[in-house]
Design a protein around this nucleic acid. Structure first.
Lengths: 249, 249
DNA sequence: AAGTGGTCTAGACCACGAA
DNA sequence: TCGTGGTCTAGACCACTTG
């Protein structure tokens, strides 16, 4: 990798230098200017070429290693992580995003879309007061017209006022959070079980009662907020749906 | 928090100082000596009391923030993350570790424990040559004496020579990697499905054929290595096992 | 021996928050 | 104003890898 002598670093920018270096390298990796397993400039090389201290260069490279863009080997150097090893599975996605990724046409049928008073379970999961109002959105989710899942979402309305007026038939809940309300999703917990379909579920999913389905309870959190924004109880057809997750550390 | 003047830090240990500080604080949080939202010593305080440079103290605190043990606010200080906000779900754990966390006595019964030539599926998942030898470890896993899961692991032997000589009846595979081979696990992908139990599975798990079970295919990676160390096909009793995962971003 | 990353030091200036 | 974390510097010693 070539380093333009001392250009590309703006010492008067409010953006920290190590962050500028990070972005510089990320960009080169994403553009393909840096090939998989290609050696990056060493810390001392950056010291000279970019005119920064070694600790600063080191910080940039350490963080890139944490984010899995590069790997480092003592005595050898820093190298670009080949794409195969990189986090390839999207972690926090909605059904719509998920289906599009898999090449299916997502669709939906609304069962319920209204403000309700949360019941005990919902209140406990959302950490709301028992009488507090929440937005309930129950949908049957389709992939290429076939019913694939039943999703019952309960949403804390204080983060997204007026959400009950939106038609979610073919709209992603998560992209609505992000685009309409500027809400950045942070993390989620899923509790996953294999259970037999109830009669009602079987009818809605067009399968036989007792067939295995994937039951997923999910709590979704927003960046910087202590309380969750969404609690969802979902059921997926066992014969048609595979859940992919990526675990770290 | 009280800091014992300069004790508890061993400057001649091969363990880095920042890591010693991290462990010190983690321990106090886990023991409850540091309460939720309690203020930690500041960086300058650690400089004085522990006799380390500020950068070292800062590194320890930064990493604790990344690991969600503490949160930091400019101008205010560093504080213990309340347990509710903390990542409570271990991400990459073995069955044994998992069961201990849930308060069950883990146990096991070995079905197979030998070096084999990998079949096509295994070779593809482990990215080995089709004729390459792998260590096959098939176990029935027990929780409080009850069969709960069937785990079939295939392990790349080049990372852990001699592993076939170890008795894994009551031993964790992952802690063996870490303690005996010094292998640091990095990340894993799981593909999760709800399927009906086959006759053989039903017998081994002491349930009826056709009952829902959780089928999980997992590929596990090691830090700094491009190829996976383990591919596992596991089946968990649907009525007894819930899989918890934490998703980020 | 030379190059690399891993760690550590003893300073420094800044922006932010609370008093 | 003072204490805090956020960043940065210019050195240093070490262990590891490669020639």
């Amino acid at each position: 990798m070539q380093l333009e002598n001392n250009s590309s670093i703006d010492r008067h920018s409010p953006v920290p230098i190590y962050h500028q270096i990070k972005e510089l390298i990320k960009e080169k990796i994403e553009k393909g200017e840096l090939k998989p397993d290609e050696k990056l400039p060493s810390e001392t090389e950056m010291e000279d070429k970019l005119g920064v201290s070694r600790m600063t260069a080191s910080k940039a490279l350490s963080q890139l290693e944490n984010e899995d863009y590069i790997y480092r080997e003592q005595g050898k150097g820093s190298f670009v992580t080949p794409p195969k090893m990189r986090n390839s599975l999207l972690s926090l996605t909605s059904f719509s995003e998920d289906m599009e990724q898999r090449g299916f046409q997502p669709g939906g049928k609304i069962l319920k879309s209204e403000i309700i008073k949360g019941n005990k379970i919902v209140a406990a999961e959302l950490e709301t007061e028992p009488e507090e109002e929440v937005f309930a959105l129950h949908r049957i989710r389709l992939a290429d017209e076939e019913p694939l899942a039943i999703e019952k979402s309960y949403i804390r309305t204080s983060y997204c006022k007026g959400i009950e007026k939106i038609n979610f038939t073919n709209r992603s809940l998560y992209s609505t959070f992000e685009e309409k309300y500027g809400i950045q999703l942070h993390k989620a917990e899923k509790a996953i079980e294999a259970v037999p379909a109830t009669k009602v579920q079987a009818k809605q999913l067009n399968i036989d009662a007792g067939e295995p389905v994937l039951s997923v309870d999910q709590t979704t959190h927003v960046k910087g907020e202590r309380n969750p924004i969404e609690y969802m109880e979902a059921v997926y057809r066992g014969d048609q749906y595979k859940l992919l997750v990526q675990l770290d550390r």
